[in-house]
Amino acid sequence: MSDLGAWAWCALAAAALIVGLSKTAVPGAGTLAVALFAAVLPAKQSTGALLILLIVADVFAVTMYRRHADWRTLWRLAPAVGVGIVAGAVFMAFADDAWMKRTIGVILLAVIAITLWRRRVSAGGVARGASPVSADAPPRRVAAVTYGSLGGFTTMVANAAGPVMSMYFLASRFEVKAFLGTAAWFFAIVNVAKVPFSVAIGIITPQSLVLDLVLVPVVVVGAFLGRWVADRIDQRVFERLVIGFTVVGAVYLLVS
């Protein structure tokens, strides 16, 4: 911590604010926090430090949106997410930082491309008189396995499952509060499950916990700011922000 300069602290504080905001208003923005932490700290260490802040923000998100979760969706995702987390832990044991960033970046861009294509197909189907839900939604089991395993993998490797799961929830046509409630419970459960793995591979340390303690108040401010935004945001604007932030984060991971 003593080696961090003023600009580094500003970047970490901005990331902490984004963590709180992303959990209670715009989920895709969390990728920017991942990018800022990785720019200031070594990639693997940044993952461990960020995880604790995410859990703090999860507490606020669950408290605010606990009644809006779709539990059928969460249970459907659970097995695949578990497999993805284990795969991610194994990957982290062997891959270097560069491989981690580029692998996640490619996955995110692929998910975005598939989601946008499906939404375009959906729009064409609706124009021809088809049901918007049946036209857009992939088979439930296939989607749960695909997105769940990718979500588990990317959340373990770089806390970057937000964009992956955002694409899944968008495809499920959740309105804003249902989207945020389901995402809140999903990440609260998954992030806590990641802690033993993170401790075992040495990315959560006493030093990272001290850093987190300094940044927790900023996360709290971001969480309450996000709640204020969520009560006023339009559904179309919400979806565009999620997709936009996802693209920015994916491109950063590829070029950094």
Rank of each mutant, 00 (worst) to 15 (best):
28 G>F: 03
52 I>T: 11
41 L>T: 03
23 K>A: 01
40 V>E: 10
37 F>N: 06
16 A>M: 06
49 A>R: 07
28 G>T: 05
28 G>M: 05
16 A>G: 07
16 A>Q: 05
46 S>A: 15
15 A>R: 07
35 A>D: 15
16 A>K: 04
37 F>P: 00
34 V>N: 10
18 I>E: 01
40 V>G: 10
31 T>N: 13
24 T>M: 02
54 L>P: 00
28 G>A: 12
54 L>Y: 14
27 P>E: 03
34 V>E: 06
31 T>V: 15
29 A>V: 08
44 K>D: 13
26 V>M: 14
33 A>M: 11
43 A>L: 13
21 L>Y: 13
48 G>K: 02
29 A>P: 05
40 V>A: 03
53 L>I: 12
18 I>K: 04
25 A>Q: 07
35 A>E: 12
19 V>H: 09
40 V>H: 04
21 L>N: 05
50 L>C: 03
54 L>D: 12
17 L>T: 08
29 A>F: 02
19 V>T: 11
26 V>Y: 07
36 L>M: 13
32 L>C: 03
27 P>H: 02
42 P>L: 00
34 V>F: 08
22 S>N: 06
34 V>M: 12
55 I>N: 09
19 V>F: 05
50 L>E: 12
42 P>C: 01
51 L>W: 13
26 V>S: 06
23 K>T: 03
17 L>D: 09
24 T>D: 04
15 A>Y: 12
56 V>Q: 08
56 V>P: 13
22 S>P: 10
47 T>C: 00
34 V>Y: 05
25 A>Y: 07
55 I>V: 15
23 K>V: 03
24 T>P: 00
37 F>C: 04
